[in-house]
């Protein structure tokens, strides 16, 4: 059976850098960037893209609805 691969897209201008997505990610794939967005927040970024399983934990806890999650079975 093919393994699930996931990917996230962060709306970086909407992000407030609360870090709750990073706390929620079961694989610890998210961190806040050193750089800031236009509002001055360090925004969320997935540092290890290949390991994402698309579980959507990060997106569900995001209070600002900044994260869109995609999931696809590996052929």
């Amino acid at each position: 059976m093919g393994k699930m691969r996931g990917a996230i897209v962060v709306d970086i201008e909407r992000c407030k850098g609360c870090n709750l997505c990073a706390v929620a990610c079961p694989l610890n794939l998210i961190e806040l960037t050193e750089t800031v967005n236009r509002k001055g927040y360090n925004y969320a970024r997935q540092h290890t893209v290949e390991k994402c399983i698309g579980c959507a934990s990060c997106a569900m806890v995001c209070p600002d609805g900044c994260i869109t999650v995609y999931r696809k079975k590996e052929e």
Binding site: V9, G54, G65, I67, T68, V69, Y70
Partner: peptide, 10 residues
């Protein structure tokens, strides 16, 4: 992976 048909949450 990032294709509309694979979107699971947003």
């Amino acid at each position: 992976i990032i294709q509309p048909e694979n979107r699971v949450y947003g």
